[in-house]
Structures are given as C-alpha cells and as structure tokens.
Amino acid sequence: MFFPFSQSGVKSLSQKMSDWGVCLLGIYLVIAFLTPILINLGLIPDGQFGLDSPIFAPPSLEHFCGTDRLGRDVCSRTLQGTSVALQVVFLAVGLAVLIGLPIGILSGYIGGFFDKALVLIMETLYTVPVLLLSVVIAFLLGRGIPNASIALCVVYIPQYFRVVRNQTAQVKTEQYVEAAKAMGAGPLWIMKRYLFKNVITSVPVLLTLNAADAVLILGSLGFLGLGLPETIPEWGSDLNMALDAMPLGIWWTALYPGIAMFGLVLSLSLVGESLELFFNHKKTVQK
C-alpha cells in the first residue's frame, strides 16, 4: 500500500519503510508461488529428500546455500518454507478474524450475561502466554498444517474479540444507532449496516501484526518439534537441526532459514505500519 507524498513533496521515513515492507512481502508471495513450479520443472532440487547429495556440503554452484545433515538442499528447503509459513500463518489469522470478529460484535451489542461470559473466557485465554498456549494446543492436536493453524488461531481470537467488542460497545451508543432502533431496524441489520463498518477498520492492522507474531510462534513450535511433520520444509525445524552443526563451523544450515524468517516478520510488521498510516491519514482527511 503506497501513500501520497507529504505536503513538502517528500515521503517521510515511516512511509518509505512501509512501502519497502509491501515490496518485500510481495517478493515472498512470488517466491511461494514460483517455488513449486520450479521444483516440478526440475530447475531446483526438492528439499524434502537428500537425493544422494553429500551431507553438510558448503555453498557452491551446485547447492547455492549448501546442504544439511541429510544431504537436502538448504536453498530449496528455505524457499519451500516460505510457502508453508504463509499458508499456516494466513490460515491461522484468517480463522481468528472469522471467529473473533462476529462474536466480538455480538458480545458488545447484546451485552448482559452473554457478554460477561464471553469476556471471562476470552480474558482467561488472553492472560495465558501466547507461546505456552500454542505449545499446549499443538501438543494436544498433533503435528500438521491444519493443526498448527488451529493452535495459532486459538491464540489470536481473544485479541480480535477484545478490540471489536470494545469498539462495538462504544459505537452502539451513538445517536444514529439509536435512531435506527427507533425506526424499527433489527439487531442484525444494525450490526451489519453500522457496527461492522466502524469496527472493521482496526482489524487489518492487528491482522498483519498478528501474522508477523505468528511466523515467530510457528518457528518456535517447529524448533520444539511440535509444528509440522519432518517431511514438510519448515524454518523452525531446520533451525533446530542446525544447532548440532553450529559448533562444527557449519553455519549455512542456520543462516538462510533465519534470514528468511526475519525478512518475513519484518515485511509483515512494516505492512502493519503501512496500514496504520493509511487509516490515520484517512481519518485526518475525513476530519
């Protein structure tokens, strides 16, 4: 998302960083799309298997990022890990939005015992550390992309609930909502016509920040052996396998997955900054 120039005609540093984040995220999306195609065409090796390659081979023309302890191409696994990370992260935060947004609106609008019960449940989940809660859920569900997505989803639902519920409770007291009630508008129509439009603006910023956090949590689950199966390339599990090789001077098995994870977290964080600038600019213009 690119912003107009400021009054001086020059973009501020924060706006430039936001644009860089959008470009960097776009590169990750292109990599995730092209990697399976390149593997099917035989242009890059499949990182799931060693294919009789030497173990711990240093970076070379044959293996640009070297190989790991099983002879698997580190470059290919790092590229494949991009697609896996994006699938799990966006599935997790997407489910969190789909669940947290409607129940937040319902809780804030209905109020009463229903609101108190949901607030109690969500506050209890919110007080549990994110990593601890995701580890417990991942342990109970087992390893796999859907299970990892659900483990992350449960962690972020309370955040969307809290934000949406608080904004709904404020908006429902506005005069135009009271006027709609006086004219005979039903609760569903009011929530769809007035409440949803006012609370949705805060969701994109929170979504991108949660996505950045989810990349780190997914990597932590993989590092602990609770994320995805070993046959699926994933940055956290690759970093775990690289620990034993680091004392031997084999740096490439940890460097490239670590850089890839850092870059994705950075891009999502900058996109969140971009969205926040956009909505703040929009509010300023409306005023």
Rank of each mutant, 00 (worst) to 15 (best):
M1A: 10
F2P: 10
F2N: 12
S6F: 14
V10D: 12
K11H: 15
Q15C: 08
Q15S: 15
S18A: 15
D19W: 11
Y28K: 00
V30K: 00
A32K: 00
T35G: 00
T35Y: 01
I37C: 04
I39C: 02
P45S: 06
P45T: 04
G47T: 02
Q48S: 14
L51T: 06
L51Q: 14
D52L: 08
P54F: 00
P54S: 01
I55D: 05
F56N: 12
A57R: 00
E62G: 10
F64A: 15
R72T: 02
D73P: 04
S76P: 05
Q80R: 04
Q80K: 01
Q87W: 07
G94L: 08
V97I: 15
L101D: 10
I103Q: 12
I103P: 09
I103R: 10
L106R: 11
S107V: 10
G108A: 09
Y109E: 12
G111Y: 06
F113Y: 12
F113K: 14
F114V: 15
F114K: 08
D115A: 11
T124W: 13
L125N: 12
Y126G: 14
V128S: 06
L132Q: 07
V135I: 14
V136T: 14
I137K: 08
L140R: 11
L141V: 01
R143Y: 00
P146Y: 04
N147W: 05
A151V: 06
A151L: 06
L152V: 01
V154A: 05
V155D: 07
Y156F: 15
F161T: 11
R162D: 09
V163E: 08
R165V: 08
A169W: 10
A169G: 11
V171Q: 09
K172G: 05
T173L: 11
A179H: 02
K181P: 00
A182F: 04
G184W: 03
G186M: 02
L188R: 03
W189Y: 04
I190D: 06
M191K: 12
R193L: 04
L195E: 12
N198D: 13
N198T: 08
I200C: 11
T201L: 08
T208R: 02
L209T: 05
A211Y: 01
I217M: 12
S220N: 11
L221K: 08
G222W: 03
G225R: 05
L226Q: 06
E230T: 12
P233G: 05
E234T: 07
D238F: 10
N240G: 07
A242H: 10
L243G: 01
D244A: 10
M246D: 03
M246E: 05
P247K: 00
G249F: 07
I250A: 04
W252F: 01
L255G: 01
L255F: 12
P257D: 13
G258Y: 11
A260N: 09
A260L: 07
M261R: 07
V265F: 00
L266M: 09
L268Y: 06
V271A: 02
G272K: 03
S274Y: 03
E276L: 14
F278M: 14
N280I: 06
H281R: 15
T284V: 14
T284C: 09
T284G: 15
